[in-house]
Design a binder for these strands. Structure first.
Lengths: 126, 126
DNA sequence: ATATGTACCATGATGTTGTATGGTACATAT
DNA sequence: ATATGTACCATACAACATCATGGTACATAT
């Protein structure tokens, strides 16, 4: 698995890392159960901070693309490939766009929409 | 109708103005059909910018608390008193909450929802 | 001892958002 | 001429979130 990080790109580093790992999964460069580099190792290789890599791993695990097993390391999730689909995000954007368009038509301000969005996303049992 | 604006309060000026006008409506200090001061006049009296007063008036008209009739001026809405109690933000939160709950049920992660939200809010249709 | 993920403390830089302000201009009607 | 609401151009500032970074520490297991 080859990973290239562009420090000058407008895309956040952790997002670049997430995207390339997902890409490797979709292109079968890694398979379910395969071990991934440790956080410290990958951070050292890519010259990134541990926290940046840890953030990418944490989000990837939340998306069920990888699995962390404590001291045993991190591995590709059994259903990783299915959870990498990009069609989903497009559908999500469409779905959210419809609702927001409806709110805007009612005259709701963008700031009010953002406030409501923050309320919904933060008041959530995790 | 007496209006006091506190420049040092944490509440935005336009929000203070909206609140006090709503308060006057609810306390029967003004009645449906009564004329309100013009934007320029009120801005002058309160030592505010025209845009600030215009913003408050625009939002109050959206909430059907007041009515603007172009060159004829601005008046209290017939159903002003009832519309003062409607909590628009709560409705927006509910509406957004329903959509987001649907996305979550489909297995969409919060990170994807946030990304999609940012995309929608920045690609505003005119 | 070494390595794993994770948690907490913290800083600075950057970008976004919201608020409030200024000026100019228009169609409308008195 | 004067006044109404409204639209556009624009700037400045504060607040906030995001991103990336640093250090220290813990329980876990090899």
């Amino acid at each position: 698995m080859e990973i290239n990080i562009d420090i000058d790109a407008p895309v956040p580093l952790f997002a670049q890392l997430m995207g390339q790992i997902k890409r490797a999964v979709q292109h079968d460069q890694v398979s379910p159960g395969d071990p991934l580099p440790s956080i410290r190792q990958l951070a050292s290789d890519l010259d990134l901070n541990n926290k940046t890599v840890a953030k990418a791993y944490r989000l990837l695990e939340r998306d069920s693309v990888i699995q962390t097993r404590g001291y045993r390391g991190t591995f590709v999730h059994p259903d990783a490939k299915a959870n990498c689909t990009i069609d989903l995000s497009a559908w999500v954007t469409t779905k959210l766009g419809e609702t927001i368009a409806e709110l805007r038509e009612k005259g709701v301000t963008d700031s009010e929409i953002r406030i409501a969005f923050g309320t919904v996303m933060n008041n959530r049992p995790q």
